[in-house]
Nucleic acid binder design. Structure first.
Lengths: 200, 200
DNA sequence: TGGTTAATGTAGTGATCGACACAGAAAGGA
DNA sequence: TCCTTTCTGTGTCGATCACTACATTAACCA
């Protein structure tokens, strides 16, 4: 092992920086020059390590989903009830989308709306991520239904899409500048709707 | 009047075409070359008529909001009740976002997430549009509250933000490829929430 | 008909895009 | 020490970006 000149930068630190940049500026508006500036490396090093802008984005987005961006999903999956899980999902996302000094909104939602339709690599990645996200949510709701927990609707599929859309709405509003407090008030409203409907 | 060579194209038809293009591809990924191709004119004609890409976008977005894009808002404002108004707003938006052969999602939402943070002209336009949209919604809800119509919450401001976020969520999901039927099912869920909460 | 005004088509501005050729530098193995 | 291997810095590729200079064309008015 270890043949040849060693890499002059830390791959994971670079991925973190790239993630922050994609999160802040979206996919298309983040240029290779921006990335090499922030990472402090030359473009040949970047291409040697990550292959292309598209695959760098995918690696950075993986890191997002395995780190901060994945916490809301984990919180939901681990909650004892589906109601608590959905509430945790929404509240954790609000926290994530409005962190002080951090990029606002969701890296994936932002990329979905700012990726050129020609970049099939990134589009396919985003589509798969979206499907996985929906599957986790649907699975949690299905388990709850099997456990006899009262849900706002019998249509678990629609429920999953509904709450996923809530998250996307929060992400867009966060990017528009909505305050954390304002977002949390609408989460309260969403959960009040759950309670009113689940009470049957 | 009528001095000089007459314009060789119809300004409003051109705006319609530009609107469709911005709606389909977002702001940044729509290039001047794309526009001159579709409009069938040279770039000097485009600049003579509209000034810049940013001001062309604003003019096209105005046309969007005065035409198809404005219908949901009009339907809401004209409905006899706030409940019917909000339902009309959501359903008309679903129709708008999933028209056969038309661009998916919302031109404004798409632009909000695909506009480079340096383009202050477009960002300011989008911010004003968002504020106007929220004002119309809040006004309708306030009127209903004054009329004694039962609402899902006393906090009209939060209500307006909540239902505006529903619209943004629908727009993102439509762009992701969600079917009209699936979107309408989540609208049903939203309105079921209204009824369950407004019943008090 | 000649002059004024404005829109057009051709062509090209400098800047920036993603990506890479090439040679030098830094490590391990012989 | 010399060779192989891998990474790094300089410089640049063709393509595309938003935008425009320039000469021409087509309408008006006198």
């Amino acid at each position: 092992m270890g043949r040849g000149r060693p890499r002059g930068f830390d791959r994971e630190v670079a991925l973190d920086d790239a993630m922050r940049l994609f999160w802040t500026r979206g996919y298309q508006d983040t240029s290779i020059a921006d990335l090499t500036d922030v990472l402090g490396i030359g473009s040949p090093s970047l291409y040697a390590a990550f292959g292309s802008k598209a695959s760098l984005f995918c690696a950075a987005a993986d890191r997002y989903q395995d780190g901060d961006g994945g916490r809301p999903g984990v919180a939901m999956a681990e909650a004892p009830t589906a109601r608590g899980g959905v509430e945790a999902l929404l509240r954790e996302n609000v926290t994530l989308f409005t962190r002080r000094g951090g990029p606002r909104g969701c890296l994936l939602t932002r990329a979905t709306l700012s990726c050129p339709p020609t970049d099939s690599t990134v589009l396919a990645y985003l589509d798969r991520s979206r499907r996985d996200r929906l599957t986790v949510l649907r699975t949690r709701l299905r388990t709850a239904a099997a456990d006899g927990e009262p849900l706002p609707s019998d249509d678990v599929d629609t429920l999953a899409q509904f709450y996923d859309a809530q998250v996307q709405g929060l992400a867009v509003r966060a990017l528009e500048g909505a305050s954390r407090a304002a977002l949390l008030r609408t989460v309260d409203l969403t959960m009040a709707g759950w309670d009113a409907l689940a009470a049957h």
